[in-house]
């Protein structure tokens, strides 16, 4: 055995990665400025910056001008909400794909989205919005997760395959419950509210709704960010992870709870917006690789930029607003197909 005395060369400085992250931050800012600027009443970028500067300098002065009102009361909360939800959904997808060692899973797989949808639909059925809707969405999202956990726990151990199968079962169950709620809903009042809410939209975004979403999504993002290196270990086979002193059975649940916080909250404030958690982490993986220390922040930035941009398309493409969930699916599915092909071509070349 020939032992080389010198330690290997100093690791190359990750200059490329810093460049990529810089580009993502610029893309996010550009996407947010475009979103605030574009619309039936367009506002120039210098004017946007002026309005925001004035508002930051004296936040107590009520906006008087038309463009001030549009920027500060309508578009800014909407853009921030879309960016926050986009970051949450993308990070949730990236974390889930790591834990399941499968790039094709998403919060729908664990039944969280369907559980949250049922909670929200129930709340709309009885005519409640705001905190009741948020609380019920998150609670039923978490309930779906707990049921999945209980169903998947066999002989004191939770195997990954049983979690996926249990998630499918619980998701289907809550999907049926949503249908029941729609069936009994009043076709003149609560049914349209439920249907439009389920299709997903930020059109009702207000500052109040933004503050409703901030705690859940922020806490979820912080938990996943703190666990970013641990996710590399949780992506190993369970027995291998255990041999390194990791407790995958338990630690997976920290990730799941963070994901249900983010998913439940975003479903509550904007309905079901699919595909973000699949498309964005894939793009992020191609740009920064599979190390979760880079992948998690990259997914957050890209998710925020992407959902902000798609929301801008949703409200500007046609005179009537296209439901956001429909648009993310129409854009997401083909993009996902292309990414998937490139991903497997890459894998075959390796």
């Amino acid at each position: 055995m020939s032992n080389v005395a010198a330690a290997p060369a100093v690791r190359r400085i990750p200059g490329l990665k810093i460049g990529i992250f810089g580009a993502m931050i610029i893309a996010l800012i550009a996407s947010m400025l475009l979103a605030i600027s574009a619309g039936r009443f367009s506002v120039s970028v210098p004017r946007i910056l002026e309005i925001i500067m004035n508002w930051v300098a004296s936040p107590s002065v009520a906006p008087a001008e038309m463009d001030e009102r549009i920027v500060l009361l309508v578009r800014l909360p909407r853009v921030l909400l879309a960016a926050l939800a986009g970051a949450g959904l993308a990070v949730g997808g990236a974390a889930l794909q790591g834990v399941f060692r499968n790039p094709l899973v998403s919060p729908q797989v664990l039944g969280i989205s369907q559980g949250a949808a049922f909670g929200g639909a129930l709340s709309l059925l009885v005519g409640f919005h705001g905190y009741v809707l948020l609380g019920l969405s998150f609670s039923f999202g978490l309930l779906a997760l707990v049921l999945v956990g209980a169903l998947a726990r066999i002989n004191g151990r939770t195997e990954i395959l049983t979690v996926i199968l249990s998630g499918t079962v619980i998701g289907a169950l809550f999907g049926a419950f949503v249908s029941i709620v729609q069936f009994v809903a009043d076709p003149n009042t609560s049914l349209p509210a439920i249907v439009f809410w389920l299709m997903g939209s930020f059109s009702t975004a207000t500052w109040a709704r933004l503050w409703l979403a901030v705690p859940g999504i922020t806490v979820g993002l912080l938990i996943v960010f703190a666990l970013r290196y641990r996710l590399n270990l949780l992506a190993l086979e369970d027995s291998e992870a255990r041999s390194l002193g990791v407790n995958p059975d338990k630690e997976r649940w920290y990730v799941f709870i963070a994901i249900s916080l983010m998913t439940g909250t975003s479903v509550a404030v904007a309905g079901i917006i699919g595909w973000i958690g699949l498309v964005v982490p894939h793009a992020a993986r191609i740009l920064v690789g599979e190390d979760h220390r880079a992948l998690i922040p990259a997914s957050a930035l890209l998710g925020a930029a992407y959902l902000t941009f798609v929301d801008t398309l949703a409200r500007t493409l046609t005179s009537a607003e296209i439901p956001l969930g429909v648009l993310t699916a129409i854009i997401g599915a083909p993009v996902f197909g292309v990414l998937l092909r490139r991903y497997f071509k890459e894998a075959n070349r390796a």
Binding site: R101, N232, A235, L236, E237, E240, G289, E290, D291
Partner: peptide, 8 residues
């Protein structure tokens, strides 16, 4: 067989 999927 360890960590065979990891692109690390």
């Amino acid at each position: 067989h360890g960590a065979s999927q990891a692109k690390l």
